[in-house]
């Protein structure tokens, strides 16, 4: 039932992030200042309310949790000192661990490609990141012209920069990994 308070998700998020979402009194300051609000399917204050109502499935399937850019404007302005950006992280983590595919498919693939590059080389290399992302999404021709400009402006290096102790970085991924990268 949607009109019944259900503290289960609230409690789960508090366990993960230390944030008490139930302190939210719906002033909507988070949504008013959110620079990505125009593209979201649920506004940040709606996310807060829906957490209190235990609307787990709708939240995990939302675009909002993947579009939040973690700029932390909401976190900084919340009068009840709720780290709202941290709560968004918590929702993303729950979605990944519950096997809910990101409703923003490309955003999920970007993260996978980004982390895959670090796991492999220890450092972020633009050709690996962009190449990996294009291979996953199949959007091969987006930004082609930009790629050429970046190459000529020396923003894309052919030789990858890596850490020497790659085993140490792989160990970090092996012992923390929850998302397949």
């Amino acid at each position: 039932m949607i009109n019944a308070v259900n503290s289960k998700l609230d409690a789960e998020l508090e366990g993960r992030t230390g944030q008490k979402v139930r302190a939210c009194y719906q002033c909507k300051k988070c949504s008013a200042g959110c620079p990505v609000a125009f593209a979201m399917d649920l506004l940040p204050h709606e996310v807060m309310k829906m957490i209190s109502y235990g609307q787990r499935e709708r939240l995990l399937a939302s675009s909002t949790i993947w579009l939040c850019a973690s700029c932390e404007t909401c976190t900084t302005r919340c009068p009840n000192e709720i780290d709202i950006a941290g709560v968004m992280d918590g929702l993303r983590h729950i979605a990944i661990e519950s096997g809910v595919e990101p409703s923003e498919r490309e955003v999920g693939m970007m993260h996978r490609s980004f982390l895959g590059g670090i796991k492999l080389l220890g450092r972020t290399n633009e050709p690996f990141l962009i190449g990996g992302y294009k291979a996953m999404t199949g959007n091969l021709f987006d930004d082609m012209g930009l790629g050429a400009v970046m190459f000529f402006k020396r923003k894309i290096k052919i030789l990858p920069r890596t850490v020497k102790n790659r085993r140490a970085v792989r160990r970090v991924f092996k012992r923390t990994r929850k998302m397949e990268v």
Partner: peptide, 13 residues
């Protein structure tokens, strides 16, 4: 090594 940037904190605490 890379700090992990947004992609790390958005996917794994």
């Amino acid at each position: 090594n890379c700090c992990g940037a947004s992609s790390a904190h958005m996917t794994d605490d």
